[in-house]
Structures are given as structure tokens and as C-alpha cells.
């Protein structure tokens, strides 16, 4: 239950409050790590564990904060991939961290939706990122996964507030997500994400992503996030063909079929979208 003071807090107060809080993990992560620990399965590769990290934005955030806190800054590079953070934490370290963590609620529909949305965005970003030689697909995936950090931490530490924002949206009192958040809380969760990203010294790509900077890595990741949000709104969202047209403009050498294969939508709707995009059109783009 939030105090009357907290209901009036701005971004700065929330950052100060959240900065040193211990983050939870999802119940799915806890279960998976317990199984690995009990089986004492030494064949579990860091890559498989890295995939587990990309399935849990709280865990990814927790590990990044942990390894960034202990990392020698003389190494000079951001810990930007889930794999790198697992390797830095070590397999035993990861199991230990998860076993000591609280578990976030899986009864909050808004939290589940937000979590599913960023996981979907991360998978799409990884898949699309792997189609360009000059970007790290893992880095894009991690940035997408942490792009809604502000909302996710609020769902765990102050669920009344994101719920209030959703109520604004679904009652018609607000017509856009950001407007709903500003009406309900006084700031947008995007602002909070940006402030937390800076307070926790998270990878720079996340800042570029949230700010909207124009570079290939941020643009691909941002389209992955938009597409994930469209799929979350409706699995047959009519905006999905436009998403494929837009990503094709960034990855012109890749077929529409390959691009759409990254999306978690039905095979039937994929075919509908593909039929709606003329593969043989020389160029739909303006000259």
C-alpha cells in the first residue's frame, strides 16, 4: 500500500526509492533454476542460461546491476549481452542469485502483459538483429528486454500506479499510453525508464532506444518493440504488415518471409500478411 506522499512522488523520488531495491525474478525463472540446481546438470551451457535471462527482464536487470557493480571499469566495454552477464556472474552465481531472490507476482495481468511484451520484443530484436552483420543481435535483444524497465519495476514495487494508468486507458479517459500514465502518476514510465537506466548505468543502447536516436541498432530494436506491442494489442493487428514493410526498409536484402518468421503469430496470419505484401514488387519505397 502506497503512502499519500508516494502517490505524489515524481521521477526523482521514485529513482531514489528504487535505486537500491532488490529486484525479484519471475516464478518461471525460479522454477527453472531450482531444477538445474537439483539435477546438478553440468551440461547446462552458459548459452542456455543466457536464454533464460532473456526470458526474464527482472533477472536480466538484476544481473546487469550486479555485474556492473563488481566489474572493473578498466575493461572498457559495456556488459551488453545476456550471455556476457551470465558468464560474468558464473553459473553457480546465477543459481545462487535466483535462489535468494523474491518472486514477482504472476497474478497481475498488467505485469504479465508488460513482461510478455518485452520478452517478445527481445526475441524479435534478436532475430532481426541476427540478419545484419554489423550489429550484435544479443545486444539488441537485451536492450528491448529492458526498454520498459520503469513500468516493470513499478508493477513490482507500486502496482497501484501502473494499474491506475491502465484504468485511465481502458475507461477512455486517456487515449494514449503516455497520456494515461501522466494523468495517473504525473510522469511517463518512459521517463522513469530513462532515469533508472542512467542511475543504474545500464548499457547505452537502452538510453538511445528510449530517447529515439537514429542509428541502425536503435531503429531495428524500436521496430521490434512496436511490433511486439502491436501483437500484444491483437495477434492479427492490421499494423503488422506495416511493421514488416518498415523493417524491410532497414533490412532490404532480407525476404519478407524471413522477416515475418520472427513473429509469434499464427502461421495462417503470417500467410495473410505475406500475401498482402508483394514480394516481387521492385520497390515500394519512395525514390
Amino acid at each position: 500500500m502506497l503512502s499519500s506522499f508516494q502517490l505524489r512522488w515524481g521521477v526523482e523520488q521514485w529513482v531514489a526509492f528504487l535505486k537500491d531495491k532488490e529486484l525479484p525474478v519471475t516464478s518461471r525463472t525460479r522454477q527453472r533454476m531450482l531444477e538445474i540446481a537439483e539435477a546438478k546438470d553440468e551440461r547446462v551451457s552458459p548459452k542456455e542460461l543466457a536464454n533464460s535471462v532473456l526470458d526474464d527482464p527482472y533477472l536480466a536487470l538484476k544481473l546487469l546491476r550486479q555485474v556492473e557493480g563488481h566489474r572493473s571499469h578498466t575493461l572498457g566495454q559495456d556488459t551488453t549481452t545476456a550471455l556476457a552477464s551470465v558468464l560474468q556472474a558464473g553459473v553457480d552465481g546465477l543459481i545462487d542469485t535466483v535462489s535468494k531472490s523474491k518472486v514477482c507476482s504472476d497474478a497481475l495481468e498488467g505485469l504479465n502483459e508488460c513482461e510478455a511484451r518485452v520478452i517478445t520484443a527481445a526475441r524479435i530484436a534478436r532475430s532481426w538483429g541476427s540478419l545484419r552483420a554489423d550489429v550484435s543481435a544479443e545486444e539488441l535483444a537485451l536492450a528491448a528486454l529492458l526498454s520498459e524497465t520503469g513500468e516493470l519495476v513499478m508493477w513490482h514495487f507500486a502496482p497501484e500506479l501502473p494499474q491506475k494508468a491502465l484504468d485511465e486507458l481502458h475507461s477512455g479517459r486517456a487515449l494514449r499510453t503516455v497520456q494515461a500514465q501522466q494523468q495517473a502518476v504525473g510522469f511517463s514510465f518512459k521517463q522513469l525508464s530513462l532515469a533508472l537506466t542512467q542511475a543504474w548505468a545500464l548499457p547505452n543502447l537502452i538510453t538511445l532506444l528510449i530517447k529515439g536516436s537514429d542509428n541502425p541498432r536503435a531503429n531495428i530494436t524500436r521496430l521490434a518493440m512496436d511490433t511486439a506491442r502491436h501483437i500484444s494489442a491483437h495477434p492479427e493487428n492490421p499494423a503488422i504488415p506495416a511493421d514488416i514493410v518498415n523493417i524491410k526498409a532497414l533490412l532490404p536484402g532480407v525476404s519478407h518471409r524471413t522477416l515475418i518468421s520472427a513473429l509469434p503469430i499464427s502461421e495462417e496470419y503470417k500467410e495473410v500478411v505475406l500475401q498482402a505484401i508483394a514480394e516481387n514488387t521492385v520497390s515500394m519505397e519512395p525514390p
Binding site: 479517459r173 487515449l175 492490421p238
Partner: peptide, 21 residues
Amino acid sequence: LTILRRHLSASGTSYERMIAG
């Protein structure tokens, strides 16, 4: 906007979800 808000409120959905669905 008043008409649109009334429509969304009656269907209990957001603008984005209404258009998507």
C-alpha cells in the same frame, strides 16, 4: 473526443486495442 471516449468507455478498451481488433 467526447464521442470517442464514450465509445471506448462503453467497450472497456483502449483506442489502440480497438483499432487493432
